[in-house]
Computed example of a mutant assay.
Amino acid sequence: MIDCFVMFRQMRRSREVWKMVTVNYLEALKLQEKLASDRKALKIINTLLSLQHPPTYIVGKRETIHNLLIPDSELKSMEVELHYTQRGGDITFHGPHQAILYPIVSLRDIGLGARMYVEKLELTMVELTSMYGVKAQAGQKCETGVWVEGRKIGAIGVRISPGITSHGLAFNMDPDLNYFKHIVPCGISDKGVTSLKNETNVELPAEDVIQE
């Protein structure tokens, strides 16, 4: 439940940042929906949620469940949840040691269209990887996200309704990449998945520092 979360709010100009610990996916989804409604009604300013999830597979609004490569019955024994959402994108994995950012913002307020907004999210992850000596780049057409030589290090799946964003990005700091073997990540079968830990020779700081 929300009152069990360790949460810190920080004001930065015209936005509020909520730094949260590991949050159940459904609880985070409910929180996003509430905040998006409040943002639309001008009850809150632009808000960013920074958190992690327990192991969870998430299917986007196209419901591409065929890209889950194991039976639903195996998920319980793996202690992995499966959820369907209304965000864009294909199936993906969220879990420990990922930096997850959910911006609840008015695109009109920040002066961006949908495409430019997604590009800004990609640029955020490209710049983060460069800080640790890793060269990454945004994907080509139909390959939303951020890649290191054909290996995906950061995924994006957003919802914009109406003009208010929710969902966002997941950056692989050091997750258990074996979870990705049970799905076709983002529906792309011929490319792999990687993490910042795998790609850099630099010793990484604590995860909260990376998320910051």
Rank of each mutant, 00 (worst) to 15 (best):
E33Y: 10
E33W: 02
M125E: 02
P162D: 12
N198S: 12
E16L: 11
L48Y: 15
V21W: 12
S195T: 07
T124C: 06
I91N: 09
K120P: 03
N172C: 08
N198P: 07
T47A: 10
C186I: 06
N46Y: 00
L82Q: 04
K43D: 05
S106C: 05
Q140I: 00
T22M: 15
V193T: 06
K19S: 15
L68G: 00
I164E: 05
L35F: 05
N201H: 05
K191Q: 12
T56N: 01
H97A: 12
L196Y: 09
I210K: 00
T92Q: 01
N178S: 14
M1Q: 14
K181S: 00
E33I: 06
G95L: 00
E149H: 11
I91H: 00
H66V: 00
G192W: 12
S161T: 11
F180V: 02
T124N: 03
T124A: 12
A136S: 11
E81R: 02
V23L: 01
L204K: 01
E127V: 10
K197M: 07
Q10R: 15
Q137V: 13
D3M: 13
R108M: 03
R151H: 05
G95M: 04
V148R: 07
C186T: 06
K152F: 07
I70L: 03
Q140P: 04
S130W: 08
N67S: 05
Q32S: 04
A114G: 07
K181I: 04
E212T: 11
K61W: 02
K34M: 04
K34G: 08
A138Q: 11
H182S: 01
E207I: 14
A114I: 03
I70P: 05
